[in-house]
Amino acid sequence: MRIGIVCPYSFDVPGGVQNHIMDLAEALIGLGHEVSVLAPADEDSPLPPYVVPAGRSVPFPYNGSVARITFGPVSTARVRRWLARGDFDVLHVHEPFALSLSLLAVLSARGPVVATFHTAMTRSRALAAAQGMLQIVLERITARIAVSALARKVQVEHLDGGAVEIPNGVAVAKFADAEPLPGWPGECAPGTGGTIGFLGRFTEPRKGFEVLREAFVSLAAERPGLRLLVAGPGEAEELFEGVPPELRERITFLGLVSEADKARMLRSVHIYVAPNLGGESFGMILTEAMAAGAAIVASELDAFRRVLDGGRAGQLFPTGDATALRRTLVELLDDPDRRVALSACAREVAATFDWPTVARRVLEVYAAAIEATDGRVIDQEWVGPR
């Protein structure tokens, strides 16, 4: 099968949607299919061979974050050239309502279109302003996928249709087989030591890093061997803000890491903490941490609760409550048997998200979309932005 996949967000900046698309593409290629991915990226960016760069992106506020997108007449022309060259059996776009390549691809497509919705956002001024355009987009989508029950709920309640729920996948072996970083995670003696980890954009308020930082500072004052391992984009000055000088040497900041080093980082902690405050429809980092075998502590968000099998595969704490997080960390750091039990359960749950399994479910949706269109093409051509 010839498959075209469109990413709305720049490949020059890492993110959950970008990682999802790369892993899906590689899983589909591994299953014998021909895949091309179109994404915003500079022409000289180091990209996988299956990715076609669509040009430089610009920052745009979206769903409590800042997305880097590409839009306009030049982008429209590039999308159309890519579609014409690819002659795809099916087009798979991600986040088609983001003002970027996915929306342009849907409007320019002539055959079956599958759309994946990642976010659970229900209100947006941009979406409200573009309601007429969005209706046109919806009419051109053959089949919909939602990565979570929350994302699917948006489809049912706000977009007049359903969606097949297929979760984000995880390359289980990549995380399970990774070697920990040298010297990590170290000892976790009761009452003294332990390593906790955080990965993500710690400068974004909704990621909740301030909650973790507050809990760490309080706990580290009592546990002389406690360490915090942090990876993600951002400046060290912001990371250490509010941390007493005598505790800073116990925080190691890796900065932006490669996919390989992300797996190694997750293998280097006793406990992975996801202190997010909201805006999450799934929680891809949780599946990666589960595959790495880390014991997980996460905010009591509905999306996280679902990924962690109701709390069976990870310990939940009240969202935004640094005191409760501190208490939970103490309990787990001093209970190795509990950590082992959580880790074993997490690996079991992570296996259900393994990419080959997820990719086969996506292929079923592709087949249904192709059958639904029965080789027909859309006759009406969209003119595009001027």
Score class of each variant (00 low, 15 high):
L107V: 01
W382M: 03
T328Q: 10
Y366G: 06
P48Q: 07
L325W: 07
S258C: 03
P185E: 09
E348F: 04
S45F: 00
D302W: 09
A350L: 02
L329C: 08
V297Q: 09
E331D: 14
P233S: 10
P59W: 08
R339G: 06
E381R: 14
Y50N: 08
A303I: 01
P14D: 08
A128R: 15
T357P: 01
E139R: 15
P190E: 06
R125M: 13
L83K: 06
T76N: 12
P59T: 11
V340G: 05
L363Y: 02
F282G: 10
L99S: 03
F97T: 15
L91W: 02
G169P: 11
T373Y: 02
T319I: 03
V79Y: 01
L181I: 07
A41F: 11
R201G: 05
L229H: 09
L332S: 06
A298V: 13
A350H: 01
V52K: 12
A54E: 04
L254D: 05
R144D: 01
V349I: 15
P318W: 07
M121G: 07
L229R: 09
A215C: 01
P61N: 03
L31Y: 07
G314T: 03
G72E: 06
G16M: 07
Q155H: 13
E381T: 14
D374W: 02
L266M: 15
V58T: 13
R213F: 03
R339A: 08
L150C: 02
A149K: 13
